[in-house]
């Protein structure tokens, strides 16, 4: 159901993107006002930039510019539509794509790339006209912020017939992750990721990290999906081993099966991970080596308690956390005393 909706949306987006690319350069409305000193002053005040060539006529006249010039990084400012003027604004080829993404739930936005070329510095009195070209749509991609599309466009600013500056701009439009409030974790650094995922939550963005599943490890992940903690057992000598591998280190047999562990364990060692940020995870989190009574050790997160409560020897029990629609990870929770 969700998949159908998404693929329909995806097709609609891609068709729209192709049409917008084909439209080529689309001229927008000329700037409401010519380049002017008051706006430059507001901008340099906000930046704390005291360069006199932007605001001091005398110093600017004595400079190589021979008079006041606008800060190059202001180029986009001159043709910004503002809040209330937006309705009457000439549409750009980007608008429909962004609107379709918003409708599809990709409501989040962050800028990811900006490249500007200044053919020359511009001066008060010049009235700029923007022309926008839709350059591309890429996605859906998994990102630390959530699933999203990268939208890219180019703008050229003209003063009369002369192109004075160009810009490539790219944004990520993403589906915000559902906020969760895991018990016992306050998460002061909310970060861009989501908190410790809770089992059974409904629709969610794909978890950005995937385990490596291969011929040696598939039985383990199949077990996890069924709520079983499977430990590889040598078919020759019967020794248990973890992580799984192709050959028994004791008897060198490649014959292998598995046993289902009780799901209990004790923290053998652990770290509290604060940095660096991990996609899809909220820091701090605990990574522990858990000693199983069956004799092997296994690495996993300790959840359902504050990191400060974790200690060596702590009794834990396996718990299965659904990370997204496809992936479940085994984790460890404190065992009731």
């Amino acid at each position: 159901m969700t998949v159908t909706t998404d693929s329909t949306l995806h097709e609609r987006l891609m068709t729209l993107a192709e049409r917008q690319i084909a439209a080529g350069e689309v001229f927008g409305a000329a700037a409401a006002d010519p380049v002017n000193l008051p706006m430059i002053r507001h901008w340099t005040d906000a930046m704390g930039d005291a360069n006199p060539v932007y605001t001091d006529p005398e110093a600017a006249a004595a400079s190589a510019h021979g008079g006041i010039v606008a800060p190059p990084a202001m180029i986009q400012v001159w043709t910004m539509p503002g809040v209330n003027r937006k309705a009457g604004q000439t549409p750009t080829p980007v608008d429909d794509v962004l609107a379709t993404l918003n409708e599809g739930g990709y409501t989040g936005v962050v800028a990811t790339n900006c490249e500007q070329t200044y053919h020359r510095y511009i001066r008060p009195g010049e009235r700029l006209v923007p022309a926008t070209r839709f350059a591309g749509l890429a996605g859906p991609k998994r990102t630390a912020l959530g699933e999203g599309y990268f939208v890219t466009w180019n703008v050229t600013w003209y003063s009369g017939d002369e192109a004075v500056a160009e810009m490539l701009f790219r944004v990520l439009k993403f589906r915000p992750r559902k906020k969760k409030d895991p018990a016992g974790e306050e998460g002061p650094q909310a970060g861009a990721g989501e908190g410790t995922p809770q089992a059974g939550a409904g629709e969610r963005a794909p978890y950005p990290l995937r385990p490596a599943v291969n011929g040696d490890t598939a039985f383990f992940w199949e077990g996890v999906a069924q709520g079983e903690l499977r430990i590889q057992r040598c078919g020759g000598c019967g020794e248990l081993r973890h992580p799984p591998g192709p050959m028994c280190p004791s008897c060198r047999s490649t014959d292998r099966g598995y046993a289902v562990a009780s799901g209990e364990g004790e923290v053998y060692s652990y770290v509290v991970h604060h940095n660096p940020p991990v996609p899809g995870r909220q820091t701090p989190f605990v990574v522990a080596v858990v000693q199983l009574p069956e004799g092997v050790r296994i690495v996993g997160n300790v959840v359902d308690c504050a990191p400060s409560e974790v200690g060596i020897g702590m009794r834990v029990r396996v718990t299965y956390r659904q990370m997204d629609d496809e992936l479940t990870l085994p984790m460890w929770a404190p065992r009731e005393a």
Binding site: S63, A64, H65, P72, A73, T112, Q116
Partner: peptide, 12 residues
């Protein structure tokens, strides 16, 4: 002065 930025690109 008279330095001028000609091209400038970043990734956020």
């Amino acid at each position: 002065d008279p330095g001028a930025v000609v091209d400038y690109g970043v990734r956020f």
